[in-house]
Design a binder for these strands. Structure first.
Length: 423
RNA sequence: GGAGAGGUGGCUGAGUGGUCGAUAGCGGCGCUUUGCUAAAGCGUUAUAGGGGUUUAAAUCCCUAUCGGGGGUUCGAAUCCCCCCCUCUCCGCCA
């Protein structure tokens, strides 16, 4: 959510910033609602002032006197009027709230211009993805793949996109999660094990609701949402709270399964482990002082990159252009790992600065020592990392002539063996 | 799931229809006293929104907020209804 004062006082600047995201936004209608709301608010407040003054006067009057009765009669009319105007005001307020929720975050000045993913800027390249991987093949074509990653039985038991991980398949997932969590702990992130269902207020605060409702699984009885990412419960940890300024930046990480309906995404990039309805991910989250949030974004990205380096994977970092930035983000880097078998880049992390956008929705503040006033924190998050695509790249890039997969050295202590076998 | 009790400001805790944004205490902040500390005295102590003034801010005016929502009433922290949460007991259960 944006600051209402900002759109009121600098509508043109807001319009220009939104244009960079190439989103259709009717700011004029938002401004019109805002203006109507303020007019109505003023009327209601004035009438309430009249009621309040009468109330004080009546308190001093003996009940049952003619003066008292006259006041009652007089105030009955005011009361009716207030009620009517309040109903109208509430309607306008709700319209305004929804309109404000529909406004995207503004991109940072360093975000490159661009409309489509092709216009994202390659910010960094690491490793030599073009070197030969003589034995590489798409992971789903590796002989014995379905022994470890059983999509057919997953489809039977639950549905497409919910695989079983069996034997070394389950083991490598656990090893990766353990590796990620340990690395993040070293980098200063406190581990959290959050609820994996959240309520509507939480999903609204991080921006999943109201617009991305169709992407989440929802329970029929309590109307809870299965988390699409640990970002949701993690960010909401401090919802409606004032955190200690001296404690900033607060760094946390969490492993959760993530549930995504992926409605409308069909096609060849959904093969194998590339896109699932349920997958495992470790998420990194920071609550920071506004003055440091872009430094913290760089550090967050580096924390995610370091893990890929230790796993010996080639990757690139994309700086997202305005058009590919997403609704809530002010600036975002995507980290993509090279999958030698598919010969494509797979997104394994997305590191974003939301500035105060989520914090305003979630009312997460700190009391600034300088002013003594509560101010909104900035929130940042990034994957650290998503398991299935890292796994896909590992399987493809490290496939040996004998059909086994060499486990990266950093992962061996967690996996317990040097090779993964499909037998 | 059943029965009961409760949810008030940073915290504790009064307040059962009217001048209550709310007694009191604690904590915090400021001032005074003091060689320093402690103590004492005095004062102060929320958040959000709107209006007005202003280059801007502060000051100023108004409104809202006593778990959330709705209702009764001229008027609700207080009465009624629904929901959420906490605690106690019972049941069930990993």
């Amino acid at each position: 959510m944006l600051d209402a004062k900002l759109i009121r006082e600098n509508p043109d600047a807001v319009r220009a910033a939104i244009a960079k995201k190439h989103l259709e936004v009717d700011l004029d209608s938002v401004l019109a609602i805002d203006s109507a709301w303020r007019t109505q608010l003023l009327e209601v407040e004035q009438l309430r002032g009249v009621q309040k003054a009468a109330n004080t006067a009546m308190a001093a009057l003996p009940k049952g006197t003619p003066e008292f009765q006259a006041k009652v009669t007089e105030m009955r009319a005011v009361s009716t009027q207030v009620r009517e105007k309040e109903v109208a005001l509430k309607e306008t307020e709700e319209k305004f709230r929804l309109a404000m929720l529909s406004l995207p975050n503004l991109p940072h000045s360093t975000v490159p211009e661009g409309r489509t993913p092709d216009e994202n800027v390659v910010f960094a390249l690491h490793g030599s993805h073009e070197e030969a991987h003589p034995h590489a093949k798409p992971h789903w074509e590796i002989p014995g793949f379905s022994n470890l990653f059983d999509f057919a039985r997953g489809a039977k038991v639950t549905g497409a996109g919910f695989p079983f991980y069996v034997g070394d398949g389950a083991r490598i997932v656990r090893a990766l999660l353990n590796f990620f969590l340990e690395e993040n702990a070293k980098a200063g992130y406190t581990e959290v094990n959050p609820p994996i269902f959240v309520n509507a207020a939480s999903a609204t605060a991080t921006g999943q609701l109201p617009d991305k409702e169709g992407q989440m699984y929802e329970t029929t009885i309590e109307h809870l949402y299965a988390v699409p990412t640990a970002e949701v419960p993690l960010t909401n940890f401090f919802r409606d709270e004032i955190v200690d300024e001296a404690a900033l930046p607060i760094r946390r990480c969490a492993y959760t399964p993530c549930f995504r309906r992926e409605a409308g995404s069909y096609g060849k990039d959904v093969r194998g482990l590339n896109r699932l309805h349920q997958f495992d991910k470790v998420e990194l989250l920071k609550w920071v002082h506004p003055s440091t949030s872009y430094d913290e974004l760089d550090k967050l990205r580096e924390d995610a990159e370091r893990m890929l380096q230790k796993l010996g994977l080639s990757y690139r970092v994309l700086l997202m252009c305005g058009g590919d930035l997403g609704f809530a983000q002010a600036k975002k880097y995507d980290i993509e790992v090279w999958a030698a078998g598919q010969k494509r880049w797979l997104e394994v992390s997305s590191c974003s600065n939301f500035e105060a956008f989520q914090a305003r929705r979630a009312q997460i503040r700190f009391r600034a020592k300088e002013t003594g006033k509560p101010e909104l924190v900035h929130t940042l998050n990034g994957s650290g990392l998503a398991v299935p695509r890292v796994l896909a790249a590992l399987l493809e890039n490290n496939l040996q002539a004998d059909g086994r997969v060499k486990i990266p050295e950093a992962l061996v202590p967690h996996f317990g063996r040097e090779y993964l076998s499909f037998a």
